[in-house]
Design a binder for these strands. Sequence first.
DNA 1: ATTTCTGCAAACGATTTGCACAGGG
DNA 2: CCCTGTGCAAATCGTTTGCAGAAAT
Lengths: 157, 157
Amino acid sequence: MEQPARESVYDYLAEHGLRRTVQREAIIEAVLNTKEHFHTEELLEMSKKIEPSVSRATVYRTLPLLVRSGLLRELDLGRDVMFYDPNFVAHPTHNHLICIDCDKIIEFEDPNMELLENCITRRLGFSPTNKIVRIEGRCDELKLRGACRNRQEVQHR
Amino acid sequence: MEQPARESVYDYLAEHGLRRTVQREAIIEAVLNTKEHFHTEELLEMSKKIEPSVSRATVYRTLPLLVRSGLLRELDLGRDVMFYDPNFVAHPTHNHLICIDCDKIIEFEDPNMELLENCITRRLGFSPTNKIVRIEGRCDELKLRGACRNRQEVQHR
DNA sequence: ATTTCTGCAAACGATTTGCACAGGG
DNA sequence: CCCTGTGCAAATCGTTTGCAGAAAT
């Protein structure tokens, strides 16, 4: 049933007449190596460690391919850069909580939320294709300590 | 109980030692004149009709003030420009459905969704301050006719 | 041989900002 | 008078793109 992500990306490339280049391979491996959200600059870094010839332009040009193949999902966190989430392969309907202090991201899935959204959209004559549920707030640590420990390192702007 | 929006913005300016200029007045009136979402360029146009001296820079500098005063809310529609929504004054918890074809925006409120979100965030030790629920999909018209009539005029990119 | 891919650097476009002047208090 | 607010134009910064050479098929 469940097809390994690596194979299905390369299948996607093959089916669409897209070439298998060392740069694309490096980018794909970099993506497969992480279970965390990342943005373009981070992916560029990771890819360059595998294959130094990878350029920023190629990363920007490859990301939409990987999104279309299903390996990644664009993740609009309302920051100034776009994020990408590799966890939709395993959890197709998850949503995100984002701490306003440390930018910590908590992923959650809730069947009731799915259900409710479907009811609402049906009521309004709307067929959902993409749902962005992003809840910003204060994480546990921020509430308990008044500050988040890893405020600096996680902060993105 | 319910304070007219105009007064409360000017109160906000006064309380914060912010000056009442013709440009700010024009921008505020322009906002009060619309019940629709808009982006900066549209607000600039509307404001210039009231007071031609209003510049783009002043609109960009005034918008955060109006957001802080509560008159407007930033509305991240995942497009390349930021939108602003004047309807949160009347409906503080509403969410948005966006048609992927014609960019039509349907606003909705649902107490169950609020309730559910509160349960989820409580379960995860999270105190929400800001919720973005944006559901993209096919609107009624798109489903019935296979295309949206006002596709062109509403499209933003 | 053909056509897609690539890196580079320039272009793009929304937003921000430095500056000197205008005008509120 | 002082100091905030303004318009203008330049700067910023993530992302896109034109181009000529490189590599895949």
